[in-house]
Amino acid sequence: MLRLDHVSKSFGLGAFGSRSFLAVDDVSLRVAPGEVVSLIGESGSGKSTIGKMILRLLPVSSGSITFQGEDVSTHTGKALKAYYRRVQGVFQDPFSSYNPIFTVDHALDLVRREYLGDLSGQEWRRRLTSVLETVSINAGEVLGKYPHQLSGGQLQRLLIARALMLDLRFLVADEIISMLDASTRIDVLNLLGDLKTRGLGILFITHDLSLGNYISDRTVILRHGAVVEMGATGLVFGNPCHPYTRALLSAVPQLHARWGAAPEQQAPPVPGGSAPGRQAPGTPGATTTAVPPAGLVATVERSRTAPGRRAALVEIEDDHFVAPTGNG
């Protein structure tokens, strides 16, 4: 339903864009209806930039974004507005997502004004009532209040409700629960699961691997703007093949295991020849020696000033793709 093909994004830096920074580097991925895809990466991995490009809040530098068969990466005006009827986003900070000088109703009123102006007051209320029920919001507790009077969980639910008032087909959920408390975040996550069963496609952007593992059908691991590993969530988490994915997974704090206590996961080596000629003989494509992830040691980042020719991902098993090592 939504696909990205070779999407890159570079930002101009310096006076009149004399230098540039490559934030997203040749990313291709797709999301099917009724599917939650997690986009997982650390800070600076370009995950939010991808979300913003899908939402057309940022223009793509190259590549295409296709939604239901039409290339949307150049839409403007009416076409863009029609696109927003079907594709919406929810962001990380619920308090920044509302205009603080208005009550929370304002967010809904904007949608009504722009898209549902022909609805009678009665029809609008009927629709609103049913949508609020879907997101488990008590209208009396929430409507007419100012953002700072509500909890983060309520605000995020209401933003999801706002999107559902439209003919929503695809939702970009950018870190939507990372600012919520543990006891309420899981219910918002479950709400995404409910929407999925109604046929919505969801791109769930997060830095938290455990959340990605919980909610998503497929997982994409990003590093420095490029995909290092992607596939069915069970395969990526159960059989991580890229050293970076492994290092990330081994650094995730767990409730029932301490760091270092868990046995090193044994993964089958990448089938011979699939990661062409980048590693020394005798070293399988995916070794158990973890590459220290970015930030663990102060490494000099590889130059990110020009889009490099990326080697294609290698399919090591059904629906499980890994970037050749030495590339990311």
């Binding site: 543990a182 309420t184 975040r185 996550l189 691997l209 455990s210 593992n213 919980y214």
Partner: peptide, 18 residues
């Protein structure tokens, strides 16, 4: 209510505190 890496959540769901 805390999801974990290394657990599959195909069937069962966690729940928060209302």
């Amino acid at each position: 209510s805390l999801p974990e890496v290394g657990v599959r959540y195909e069937e069962h769901r966690l729940s928060g505190i209302a």
